[in-house]
Design a protein around this nucleic acid. Sequence first.
DNA 1: TTACTATATGAGTAGATAATCATATAGTTA
DNA 2: TAACTATATGATTATCTACTCATATAGTAA
Lengths: 109, 109
Amino acid sequence: MDKKSQKMVYDKQAEILKALAHPIRIAILDFLKDGEQCVCDIAEFAGSERSNVSKHLSVLVSCGVLEFRKEGLKVIYSLKARCIMDFFKCITTCVKQQAKDSENLLKVL
Amino acid sequence: MDKKSQKMVYDKQAEILKALAHPIRIAILDFLKDGEQCVCDIAEFAGSERSNVSKHLSVLVSCGVLEFRKEGLKVIYSLKARCIMDFFKCITTCVKQQAKDSENLLKVL
DNA sequence: TTACTATATGAGTAGATAATCATATAGTTA
DNA sequence: TAACTATATGATTATCTACTCATATAGTAA
């Protein structure tokens, strides 16, 4: 791959990671992994204002991770990119590894 | 898991994702996947100033993804959290999926 | 129609982030 | 020792981000 295409790939990867890199957005994905939900339930789960959650949702939609459908007054969001969940398995492994490292550090102190 | 611990997990996951969510930092990880490298070579690969790259490196070190050793004047960085690379396989899948979606969209337009 | 509900959006603000440039540190070599 | 090299750090600035609150939209129900 040439330098320029490589840079485009890095940019695209960074874009997706950036869209995921927020505790509320991670909570949303975790909540949606078992099925679709409306904004009000998502907001309650995430523990944040609806208007704020609505903005986080639109970030996830525009990076292609979520999709939505309308049902009367409600807007129902669901996971579009299932691969994202594998992704979270990976990051959980990393978090666990870090926790283990800290634990080992504590032992020798 | 209780609400409070759950929030801590989301925060920790977001912290790691945030540390990864930058094109230069992704380039660094990609460059280091095949072995350790000094700052000057990393900077050249990433196409950015050494001082800037140095800061990006310290972000990756403090989130536990990289480690380093000193060798004379040089500082040699290497991957610490190997699991990160699985992680990138996952995100590459997502990027490909998105590209495929765009392609399909183009066809019907 | 009006009142109500769910969601989205815009303005404003505070705080975080990244890049650049200058400077500091610390190891090397003459 | 002084000069040089690799890296790190601090100050500054510009840009981005997230949150809050107010307002807009659009579907529902009386």
